[in-house]
Write a protein that binds this DNA or RNA. Structure first.
Ligand code: SF4
Ligand code: SF4
Lengths: 141, 141
DNA sequence: ATTTATTAAGATAATTTTGTCTTAATATAA
DNA sequence: TTATATTAAGACAAAATTATCTTAATAAAT
């Protein structure tokens, strides 16, 4: 199992960090991305389709087409990517899986959990692709 | 998708909180637990098998058999339950899914993430079934 | 125009997770 | 000793997630 994000979402983040490292205003093909960061090509294709729909990347069909980011790399946060792919479940649902609990009479872990969760959301909102692209050192990046 | 723990693990936590609410030293049947907290009976059966193997509950076959907690309710933490069912992946793997990253040269989110994660582990280590059983108010509990 | 490299999209498949069914073993009660 | 209620265990099934394959649409280069 993954930690918090789905596999799909993890791939999205990794792929966008890769895109953010490339020269701006050039079309990068799925094939390139998938090969370089070593994730399944066609699965990534579908992920990119979602990201196009959400306005995070733009696509160009045909010869020497591909994808590029719509906004500047310092305007796209991890949070945005997660919302686009996984939605908000990770920050709205009960961590112990209790259904129908809206914390009107919170259990002994709720408030602390909420604070931890909020810290996490703050973290991924603050971190932009820019920073990660700049600093991350992985094989192929 | 669940938040952090697998469904299986969420069920385990819920079931053990239920057990912790029952009178000590009485055998509680899977059927009772499953019906009361509204989770699949046979799935819960397998979960309890794992918990028996890990020494968190003890089982008694046959007529008027069932399960009960081995230790006292204030000695079993959520952390213990999670380790038994989900293992340690949630606190050891990369949150963005990068393989082969042991944070020797940490990326811009690693340290903050680590600190948040450690807070969470501390939280679930500190909360015992006792507290939750005592305070949680859910239908059927 | 034709070829080629690409995304888009849908069908299919594999894997993992979750859930159900069935039978055997076992312990109690009658 | 027989009937009954239970866990144990394994087979099976359904659903969700992840991954692959195929074809169509499209755009550029020749
Ligand atoms: S109060 Fe407790 S049980 Fe309810 S949603 Fe919050 S963490 Fe879950
Ligand atoms: S340093 Fe960054 S990429 Fe590496 S494990 Fe930590 S969070 Fe993941």
């Amino acid at each position: 199992m993954s930690v918090i994000f789905s596999r799909e979402c993890e791939y999205a983040i990794q792929a966008l960090i890769f895109l953010a490292k490339q020269e701006r205003n050039t079309w990068i093909s799925i094939k390139d991305v998938a090969q370089q960061i070593n994730i399944p090509q066609h699965f990534l294709g579908k992920i990119f389709q979602k990201l196009v729909q959400k306005g995070i990347v733009i696509s160009q069909k045909g010869f020497s087409g591909g994808f590029k980011l719509t906004k500047d790399v310092n305007k796209i946060s991890i949070f945005e990517v997660v919302e686009a792919i996984d939605g908000d479940g990770y920050r709205t649902k009960c961590v112990m899986g209790f259904p129908d609990c809206s914390a009107d009479s919170p259990c002994p872990i709720h408030n602390k959990w909420k604070s931890i969760r909020d810290d996490f959301v703050k973290l991924i909102k603050s971190k932009k692709l820019f920073e990660l692209a700049h600093e991350i050192k992985k094989p192929g990046y």
